[in-house]
Nucleic acid binder design. Sequence first.
DNA 1: CGCGTGACGGCAC
DNA 2: GGTGCCGCCACGC
Length: 128
Amino acid sequence: MKKTTHKTTPLKSVTPSGKRDESFFEAVYDIVRQIPKGRVTSYGAIAAALGAKSSSRMVGWAMNNAHVLKNVPAHRVVNRNGLLTGKMHFAYPEQMQELLEKEGITIKEDQVQDFSKRFWDPLQELGL
DNA sequence: CGCGTGACGGCAC
DNA sequence: GGTGCCGCCACGC
């Protein structure tokens, strides 16, 4: 796809109503909600499922906005190392680990154990 | 408009 | 296998 010749608002389209295009956010939330209990995925995997794998940072940015919507299990999203990098953004840092352990996931030093087995790839699982 | 920052990831060393 | 640097895109100053 060709991008705009001007560097202004490459991805951030503005809807006629004047608000920012939240389609990216909604898409992220939609995938996160589909993460099975007891499984985790990575920001990059979600970004890849959205066709913007190089924008994995935007996924994390979207999650920061997601705390408003309680329907999004953001605790099931970790970085590609299986590290709970986003724990500081929860109500309290330990909450992320508590929620994961409550789902049967073992965590050691903010690190998801058996990450490769716990990993849930939206691209593969959703058949994309 | 430039610069620094960030819930990231890939690659070089 | 770990560490560091760079690229990525959006945001705040």
